[in-house]
Each structure stands twice: as C-alpha cells, then as structure tokens.
C-alpha cells in the first residue's frame, strides 16, 4: 500500500502548479498509470479522498488513465502490446524486447479555476 505516497506526490505537484497560477480550486487531476506497476485504483481513490480536504484539490475529480504494456522487439523492430506474462514478439517469437510503455506513473494535466473565470461563471 504505497498509494498514499503516490497520491501525496500527485497533490504536491498539482497544488504547487495551481497555486503558482493563483487558482482558486482544482477541478480535475488526470494521471497515467502503467498496467505493469503495482498501483491499485481503489487505493488511489481512497488516498485521494483522505488527503485532499483543506487543499486546493478538495472536491476535485481524480481521473486515472491506464496505459497497457507495450514493447518493441530488439530483433525485428515489431511493436506490440502485452500483459505481464509472455512478453514475446508476435512476429519473430524473440524474447529480447524493450519495454516502451506500461510503467508510467505520470501526472498528465490539471484543470483549475482562476478567480476571474469563476466570476464569469457565476455572472448572468
């Protein structure tokens, strides 16, 4: 259960960025999580709910995009997606493949409200 640390990393980066822009709130945080990491979505949402109150991200939505494993064959150059097992080139059956995607732990973007945007939204 290292999701608490992961979410606190997400919040630090998001809240810092939002604060630098003088945002009044964060509406949404989008992250990318590789299928080959040990991250559990439910534990992420749980930690997010526990850690956001009192921050700019209070009430924000956490959107988790899962990135499937993808490797490139060192022998023939074929790129293919795969799970955790049997990472084998579908073209030449080589096991010498380099992982291209699947271990991501990335903050993709945040959506924030700026003071003037909020006023515009509340106006007639």
């Amino acid at each position: 259960m290292h999701e608490m640390g992961i979410v606190s990393g997400i919040l630090t980066a998001s809240v810092d960025t939002a604060a630098r822009k003088d945002a009044i709130r964060i509406n949404e945080i989008r992250i990318r999580v590789g299928e080959l990491t040990e991250i559990v979505d439910d534990a992420l949402y749980f930690a997010f709910e526990a850690l956001t109150p009192g921050t700019l991200a209070e009430g924000a939505t956490l959107v988790v995009e899962r990135v499937p494993g993808r490797s490139k064959c060192v022998q023939c150059g074929t790129s293919f997606s795969h799970g955790r097992f049997d990472v084998e080139c579908p073209e030449c059956n080589s096991y010498f493949c380099e992982l291209v995607e699947g271990r991501e732990l990335e903050i993709e973007s945040i959506d924030i409200d700026l003071p003037d945007e909020a006023e515009a939204g509340e106006g007639p």
Partner: peptide, 13 residues
C-alpha cells in the same frame, strides 16, 4: 483552465 504537466509522479525519487 487546463494545464498540461506531463510530469513523473515520483519525480523526486
């Protein structure tokens, strides 16, 4: 307003 971060979560680590 959307801001692209494209930043590793475990940046510090």
């Amino acid at each position: 307003m959307k801001i692209d971060l494209s930043k590793p979560i475990l940046d510090r680590n």
